[in-house]
């Protein structure tokens, strides 16, 4: 990475996102990062997106995405509103995010950031995504610490936790539906659940044993 300092024209974080960066700024950035993005994508991106726009868009996604609806927000911003990529590219990116370690939304931000502006874009996207939420979460936790002797507060938080687990279950069901209906993947998922969830076996050991087995079974079922 050559210059880490953004050019002056990219300073306006609060600038109107609809307004593209000035042309001199565009040509300044065109040289390096766009070569990187074109290697990642099948077609070169039409015009580079400014870092301040990336920061703005991802801060908005991060702050507005209450209750875990980040994927829908991200789709709306990146695909529908800004046309940074098409539906198919978004979904294949999401598949990669789900296979690799890391939160889906965190990885999706990195994926979009890298495509738009290379490593610097990924860093900007991730900081935009989690920057404000971190401050908010710590503020709520500080207030919570003052009242943590109240019984009803714990009940309220229990209720929120239980309902939020419902969201996790929905994610699990949707992911399970995408899998094939064969016996092997169901058995693998069931064993992982029982080993880690019910018996509290160490997750590392369970995944280290079952992941290779699952991949081998997937490979065999392809040919069988």
């Amino acid at each position: 990475m050559g210059a880490l300092h953004p050019p002056r024209c990219c300073r306006g974080i609060f600038a109107n996102p609809a307004m593209a960066s000035p042309p001199d700024c565009t040509s300044y950035w065109l040289a390096r990062p766009s070569r990187q993005t074109s290697r990642m994508t099948s077609r070169p991106s039409p015009e580079p997106v400014s870092l301040s726009l990336i920061a703005l868009v991802f801060s908005r996604i991060g702050v507005l995405s209450f209750g875990g609806g980040l994927i829908a927000w991200m789709h709306r911003e990146a695909v529908e509103a800004r046309r940074w990529l098409n539906d198919q590219e978004f979904l294949s990116g999401l598949a990669i995010c789900q296979v690799l370690p890391g939160g889906n939304m965190v990885n999706m931000s990195l994926y979009l950031g890298v495509r738009l502006r290379g490593a610097l874009g990924a860093m900007t996207a991730i900081l935009g995504l989690i920057g404000l939420p971190i401050v908010i979460v710590i503020a709520i936790a500080a207030v919570y610490a003052k009242f943590d002797t109240l019984r009803s507060l714990h009940l309220v938080l229990d209720g929120i936790a239980a309902a939020a687990v419902g969201m996790n279950i929905t994610t699990g069901i949707k992911a399970a539906r995408r899998n094939s209906r064969a016996l092997a993947p169901i058995a693998i998922a069931g064993s992982v659940f029982a080993a880690v969830g019910i018996f509290h076996w160490p997750m590392l050991a369970v995944v280290a044993c079952l992941a290779p087995l699952s991949i081998v079974l997937a490979w065999r079922s392809r040919h069988g």
Binding site: A176, A189, I198
Partner: peptide, 25 residues
């Protein structure tokens, strides 16, 4: 193949996480 092989692992772990939180409430 890797995508298909890792998917059920993730599903099992998601349900294990849900169970762990419910158990703790």
């Amino acid at each position: 193949t890797i995508e298909r092989g890792l998917a059920p692992i993730a599903v099992g772990l998601i349900f294990a996480g849900a169970y762990a939180v419910l158990e703790a409430t």
